[in-house]
Computed example of a mutant assay.
Amino acid sequence: MCILSKLRHAPTFYRMIQTHIQTRQGLPEDMQLLLRDYPRETWPDHPDFTASIQNWMGAHQMFRQLTAITQTDTEKLIDGGIEQYRYTRRLSHFGNLLVRNLHGHHGWEDHSFFPELNRADPRFEHGLDMLEGDHVVLDDVLDRFKRQGNRIVQLEYLDPNAVLEEAKHLHGLTEEIGQFLTRHLSDEEDLAVPILLHHKLRG
């Protein structure tokens, strides 16, 4: 899109910047309607902050931890702080957990959880669509991470001397996943939990 076209459609273009995971700075203001009534610091003491909501957020924390493990392990390999064979074994285990569980989690949200939230409060349909769009972006980077990770694990047997250089490429992908998850998971919680609390869902 040329600059003139961007200016001609400024509200739409600005909206895209606000809502795209690679450019937004937080949950857009118009999606914070319930968050202002149910700020994050009040959630633990709310009577409707049920075990199912806590378990959902616990899964988010697991994704953060798995991403941190793969990123830290890769940095250790590059710096000589972990044996290569141990690194590839851990990458195979934790990388598989990260990709498989994120795909399953996102699929459940798209097909079950988000429609439930939308039925409860259609005012936030655009926000839920935004989060689904995040999943598309994340699926792409997870696919690249999976292919690169599998390549590294195979090279441990086929060409061990090539592992280190390939791990440097993987490190950039772990950083990308970490940045995306930091933004996406925080925004997802800030949108979904107030809806759940306000409408007393998941009780």
Results as ranks from 00 to 15, higher is better:
53 I>Q: 06
114 F>E: 00
63 F>A: 04
45 D>K: 15
180 F>T: 04
201 L>P: 04
139 D>K: 07
34 L>C: 05
168 K>S: 08
106 H>T: 01
200 K>D: 00
106 H>R: 02
65 Q>Y: 10
8 R>D: 09
122 P>A: 06
22 Q>K: 14
202 R>V: 03
5 S>R: 08
193 V>S: 06
199 H>R: 15
109 E>W: 06
6 K>H: 07
14 Y>Q: 15
91 L>R: 05
102 L>G: 01
90 R>I: 05
172 G>M: 07
9 H>R: 14
50 T>F: 01
74 T>I: 05
171 H>N: 07
140 D>Y: 06
117 L>V: 00
56 W>K: 03
193 V>P: 03
84 Q>K: 09
77 L>D: 00
62 M>Y: 02
95 G>L: 08
195 I>G: 02
79 D>K: 14
143 D>H: 09
141 V>C: 11
142 L>P: 03
34 L>E: 02
106 H>I: 02
61 Q>G: 10
59 A>V: 05
139 D>I: 05
118 N>R: 13
12 T>R: 15
158 L>Q: 13
1 M>A: 14
42 T>M: 11
173 L>R: 01
113 F>M: 07
186 S>H: 10
9 H>Q: 12
201 L>R: 08
139 D>M: 04
135 H>I: 03
36 R>H: 09
25 Q>H: 10
51 A>K: 11
6 K>Q: 11
161 N>A: 12
81 G>N: 11
203 G>R: 15
176 E>H: 15
112 S>D: 13
140 D>H: 12
152 I>V: 12
164 L>W: 09
22 Q>A: 13
74 T>C: 15
